[in-house]
Design a protein around this nucleic acid. Structure first.
Lengths: 102, 102
DNA sequence: TCCATATATCGAAATATACCGATATGCCAT
DNA sequence: ATGGCATATCGGTATATTTCGATATATGGA
């Protein structure tokens, strides 16, 4: 849990928004039938909502994953990204712990 | 409470360290007798601990103040900076609220 | 095998951030 | 007024981030 890397990843409004969107699968178009059991969202769906280029979103997801805030699973040609709830909570706790007094 | 400005201010290890140091006045040299009643710390003391230039620390404190994380009080030729506990806690809560699921 | 699709990576341009030294400003004592 | 501190601001350079389009890689299907 690298707090510096975490804050760098969070220090961008689009990346934060993606984390918020990923709270609820219904923020994205329905998954293909063959992916119905997966809880992640593919890059193309995230890209469409964020309205930035494919390469930008791909690298954003890489940053979020590097910081541990999301997980990724490749299924065929798709990569599915999902929130890492435990890591997100741990990061918030660590930051709060470090910065608040009590 | 601008979460973007807050995260930008926190996205620097020295600025975070300054916030941590300011938790405890005894992290700095004793205040002059005439400043004994003030709870803040002057720029020069912060600069000495951070070991960056005076201008850098002055602008860092400006960023932290702009984000609301510290308050400043001028007394004579000195500016005393102190943590804004309520704002720091509010910022942590807001960030946690936005990013965590439950 | 060849092609289309999804994602990742590369290289570049524009902008922001991290610092610095020099200078300006404000305050105090003489 | 003059000089000496403490702090703020300015202008600059080096580095990092944002974002793109182009290209590479991987996969799955005809």
């Amino acid at each position: 849990m690298d707090i510096t890397k975490t804050l760098a990843a969070l220090n961008n409004p689009v990346r934060r928004q993606i984390l918020v969107w990923l709270k609820d699968r219904s923020n994205f178009p329905p998954a293909l039938a063959e992916h119905a059991d997966l809880d992640g969202v593919c890059v193309a769906y995230i890209q469409a909502k964020a309205a930035l280029s494919q390469s930008t979103i791909s690298s954003y997801m890489g940053l979020l994953k590097d910081a541990g805030l999301v997980t990724s699973e490749r299924h065929g040609q798709w990569t599915f990204y999902a929130r890492n709830e435990a890591a997100i909570e741990a990061a918030m706790q660590a930051l709060t712990q470090e910065l608040t007094k009590s």
